[in-house]
Amino acid sequence: MTAPRYDVLAIGNAIVDVIADADDAFLSAEGLVKGSMRLIDEAESTRLYGRMKAGREISGGSAGNTAAGLAALGLKVAYAGQVADDQLGAIYAHDIKAQGIDFIVAPRGGIGATATSLILVTPDAQRTMNTFLGATQRLELGHFDPSVAADASILYLEGYLWDPELPRAAMVEAMAAARSAGRKVALTLSDTFVVDRHGDDFRRLLDEGRLDILFGNEAELIAMTGASTFDAAVEALAPKVPLLVATHGDQGAVAVRGTERARVAAEPIADLVDTTGAGDLFAAGFLAGEVRGLGLEASLRLGAIAAAEVIQHYGARPEQDLKALASDLL
């Protein structure tokens, strides 16, 4: 097998986050469920944006955040996500490329506006996301070459992007290219609503042996299995995938590979500011450890360090030097 050009190819929704403070009263007045993510149309995005406090515009998107974390940890990364040929699309592309990531999908006109996520952060650091997908739903074959997946050690797929038909077809082709080349395929479940809508597809991928690594948090794993507890969900899913990585909030995380198992505690933090991107950066740290062959416990610790960094500031991409924070592991 020839050496791949990339350590990781990440595929996901290319979204510009607009992050603003809000209180519980505002969420209640808007009929929003704290900590949830909902999909909205352009009209609702415009209306809600007009009601929000002044926000910070930061490039985001789950797999894009993971790609940023991977690059910050020194890995060779490519990213596939569709943006429009508009101002926000230009900002997003610049942010990705400035981190040394190969952005392998060109901006396009005539496909709507670049996606945005209006993120309301309450004083308890919980984030409530209102996402207009726009152009990101138009990642499609003909504008994205899935064979690039054969040139990456790990193909990392964002569950959110499984929802629209066109990018789902592109991801299926990328999975086939990766597996044909003997590469690993990783999937993050992303959200319980994704599992509710597409759990049967994900379970079929597991049964068919088309996934090598599965990432999920407590709620997502319970939704996948119907189990009543985190530990029961881990026990139910672990035999179905070569490597299961299960995050458990402030209780840490677990990884299971066959008979090998590791558990780590969450990293201590000084100040919880914004939980946006915690899972994305955890995945980045873990995958960085996996690529480097660090073993399950060290990879989990690297994930916990990356997640701890991102929840201590606004925005879902690292601001401190992750390699310095994890110098004892790298």
Rank of each mutant, 00 (worst) to 15 (best):
V121Y: 04
R127C: 06
D17K: 06
A78G: 14
E173Y: 03
A22G: 00
E140M: 10
D163I: 15
G100E: 06
R203L: 12
L322F: 01
G216L: 02
T66M: 01
A125D: 08
M175L: 14
V172Q: 14
G279F: 04
F282K: 12
A71T: 06
Y49T: 04
E309N: 13
I91L: 12
G134Y: 09
S153N: 06
Q99T: 05
Y314K: 14
A177S: 11
L75S: 09
R127M: 11
S327R: 10
A20Y: 15
A149G: 04
P4Y: 10
M52N: 08
Q126W: 00
P268C: 01
G31V: 01
D41V: 00
G315M: 06
A178E: 06
A223R: 05
A10Q: 04
M224A: 03
P146T: 08
I58V: 14
E165F: 14
G89P: 08
A219G: 06
E260N: 09
K53I: 08
V8C: 07
G134T: 08
A3F: 00
A236E: 14
V241I: 12
V185I: 07
A308K: 01
S147Y: 02
V121R: 11
L27W: 02
M1Q: 14
R197H: 05
N13G: 08
A219L: 07
I40H: 12
G74Q: 05
A67G: 06
E220T: 00
I15V: 14
A29S: 15
Y6T: 05
K34I: 10
D17M: 06
G35A: 00
Y314W: 03
T46Y: 02
Q320P: 07
A93D: 15
